[in-house]
Design a protein around this nucleic acid. Sequence first.
RNA 1: GUCCCAGUAGGGUAGUGGACAUCCUUUAGGCUUGCGGAGCCUAAGACCCGGGUUCAAAUCCCGGCUGGGACACCA
Length: 565
Amino acid sequence: MFIQFKNETKSLLQSAVKAAGYGTEDTYLEESSYADISSSIALKLAPQYKKPPANIAKEILQKIQIPAKSYVGRVEVQGAYINFYVNRRFLNQTISSISEEREEYGSLPKKNKRAILEHTSVNPTGPLHVGRGRNPIIGDTLARVLRCAGYDVDVQYYVNDMGRQIATIVWGYDNIDPNILPKLERDKSDHDVVRYYRKSTEAASNPEVESAIMQLLGEYESDNPIVIRKFKKVVERCIEGQKQTLERINISFDKYIWESQFVRDGTVNKVVERLKKTKYARIKDGALVLDLTHFGLEKDFVLTRLDGTTLYTTRDIAYHVWKFDNADIVINVLGEDQKLAMDQLKCALKILGLGRLPQIVFYSFVSLPEGKMSTRKGTTVDLDDLLDEALERAYIEVHKRRPELLEDEKRRISEIVGMGAVRFDIIKVAPEKMMTFRWEDALDFEKQGAPFIQYSHARACSILNKAKLKKFNPNMLVEPQEIELIRKMAMFPNVVDVVAHDLKPHILATYARELAETFNQFYRFVPVLKAEGDLRDARLALVNCARIVLENTLNLLGIEAPKSM
RNA sequence: GUCCCAGUAGGGUAGUGGACAUCCUUUAGGCUUGCGGAGCCUAAGACCCGGGUUCAAAUCCCGGCUGGGACACCA
């Protein structure tokens, strides 16, 4: 609804500006705490026309003609600003849209565009850890939002199965006696894999072991079927464990794309051959490189080693070419350490004449107070441990508040609250901001975190449990807290649009918190069940709307909306 | 050393040219004979430093300082 309102104010303003004799493209409309939408256009025109901005604003205002069927209620000038306010029709329409569309409310029209969104894609060397823990959560939230915004989304995990690290693990399974490994801390396959990874990395300092590992890698690339089977087994074991972890926080993938597929089907070679023929290619110390100084990159992009084998980023070019064959837009969620590689990759795509480039969401790593996490060194906080601790902590809270509940019910709610708290805690911060992991902070379910939003939803459900929804008259809703709530709910589709466009998932978290806050203020000041007649029916309908929008918002965040907690 | 990103109340965080800088936490005080107090209200407290551009800078530019990342024939 807000999107229509915004478009309407835009065209109203454009024609009024023209009628008042001014010329400008932009309408400088923005959301404002002073009005539903506000324009600072007079300030922009002032220097050009050498008139006081307030006068210009008044002149424009006089030319604004609000049409009969409009969502604009009134327009006012305050100082240099032109402020637009919604009308009753807007509010009523919002309520009826939500009531009718229900779980579809917020979904934007189908765009008929395919999107491939790649996220997580960590090396399959061990369990997921908190250091890169933002990746799946950012990725999954964006996937949900993009679907809601009308894209056909295919979510992919790019499996780095050709790395020397995997060869190291394969060597480990072949040569290390399991009895000398540290005890398996958790009965999960990825935790088993990482024991071998750490131990065989130590062993690899021995040159004989090192060359055995390199030989394995060579045989994997040259299609030795026995070696392929071994690699596959190791990688699948690891991925299976990671999958189990991510399922706990509602994250799954449509496809797992193995890096080796592009080597085996020859597309990597084709890409290299094509790049080799371009003017950017040259041989440096026997290796094929791209000179990207033309694109402002100092560093040569090394495509192949001396022995002709390809490197990780080279193979990634082939993957991206394939992605663009299968999608209209391509989005990657990656750690900030990939920035240079992605710049190089983008240049290669330009050189290949693709015409399209991936959009990349970079996030900063979560570090520990004493430094960064490393799987190899074993200085990680595993996501599994964080989720377990969050669950424990949630259980304590639930038990404190609802001691009378059955044990199963307490555990079920703890799960919903604990997993939601973790997701929200991570998604609420802008991806480029750095985070330091501290147990006390991570498990401190801050007041306006996920439980706050879930609680608002549970309250709404509780009211609705005690009464029946009937036909209602939206004109009954006139209290300031009621109007505020409707206006906030009207923003939801716009939030979906903005998050999908800017790829900024934390904005959704901010919205969720504001929506819950607005509902709580309504709840505190406006009686529903104690109201009578038409007023009661209208307020019940409003509570139902709030319940719907809270649930839809939580769904996009991958967080469950409990009916009670 | 060079390049990229970040720096906002005691801690965390939103805002990326415009109207009193958002919210949580903290501290102090208040609210329930209201539908679930995991709630609501009030107050205290911040734009890293120094220049510049602009009618207007937390926001843009230059130079510092601090933290993270990159600078591989690793992935």
